[in-house]
Write a protein that binds this DNA or RNA. Structure first.
Length: 153
DNA sequence: GCCAACGTTGGC
DNA sequence: GCCAACGTTGGC
């Protein structure tokens, strides 16, 4: 079982948006970064747990928990010319981009802000979220780091 | 809105 | 295969 953090801009898709989806479930499309793709394709498994993080907003931070409820499968938006995620270079017979389905579990009792998480940097060695210039939209979270972040709740 | 940091692209 | 230019991310 692996642990993850995924970023989403709340203006585009928030934790409440996920909660309000039919079945509280949505496919996580639009990942167009090879490192993130490799995590999805190679390491994400059904049952893995995810910290839902709001980025590019007044209060960036962890806002909830969700669960991976599918194995990785091709991201069909890459084949749709009308999609903003269209990628002419992705061959349907050999898809370049993958996605998984996420299901809402719960919101955290309060926002666990990036600023607060950074205060524990000494116990979060190697955690990509607090590395300068980090742009990964999907990243693995060590169990110890997971426990620490949720202990702040 | 600014800008640092990083990934990607493309010329050579 | 190098690397400059460009685009994007995301905190502030």
């Amino acid at each position: 079982m692996n642990y993850w953090l995924i970023k989403s801009e709340p203006d585009a898709f928030s934790i409440d948006d996920l909660k309000n989806c039919p079945g509280r479930k949505e496919h996580w499309d639009g990942i167009r970064n090879y490192q993130a793709r490799n995590f999805i394709r190679d390491d994400m498994r059904k049952g893995d747990l995810v910290l839902f993080y709001h980025s590019s907003c007044p209060q960036p931070g962890v806002v909830g928990l969700c669960e991976i409820v599918s194995d990785a499968y091709p991201d069909h938006t890459a084949f749709d010319p009308s999609s903003k995620y269209y990628d002419a270079g992705s061959d349907p017979d050999n898809p370049r981009w993958m996605m998984v389905d996420l299901r809402y579990r719960r919101k955290t009792k309060r926002l666990i802000s990036l600023e607060e998480i950074k205060r524990h940097a000494d116990r979060l060695t190697g955690f990509p979220l607090i590395r300068r210039g980090n742009r990964l939209s999907i990243m693995p979270v060590d169990k110890a780091h997971w426990d620490l972040i949720l202990s702040l709740e």
